[in-house]
């Protein structure tokens, strides 16, 4: 049974904002299919009415106080951006 095919790879690649070249699609689909076929065995396991475990820790209610502790470090924050303008990060035009 094939669970991941070329069409699926195209769709999830699009969702994940990565681009898989046409020539690599088959290979990706085959590999992902092999992996998913194996990992998908989990579906056969009877988990009864078990709840999904969302947090492994018995930790709850971790808060910080509402205090301003940060200063303006704009220059440091912009340092790693390759394209910027007037203290802004810059991207190709986003049409709303």
């Amino acid at each position: 049974m094939t669970v991941v095919d070329v069409k699926t790879v195209r769709k999830i690649a699009d969702m994940a904002a990565v681009f898989i070249e046409e020539k690599d699609l088959e290979a990706y689909a085959a590999q992902l299919n092999t992996i998913m076929e194996h990992m998908g065995k989990i579906m056969d396991l009877d988990t009864g009415d078990q709840e999904p475990m969302e947090h492994i820790l018995p930790v709850k209610n971790v808060f910080r106080d509402d205090e301003v502790t940060n200063k303006n470090i704009k220059d440091e924050l912009l340092k790693n951006a390759s394209v910027k303008e007037d203290g802004y990060f810059k991207v190709p035009t986003v049409v709303e």
Binding site: V68, N72, K74, G87
Partner: peptide, 22 residues
Amino acid sequence: TSSKIFCGCKNEFGGEPNTRCC
């Protein structure tokens, strides 16, 4: 609030761009 939801940056409208960030 005085500060943002997940960090100690100031929660205030406006300001020079990217100056209330961490």
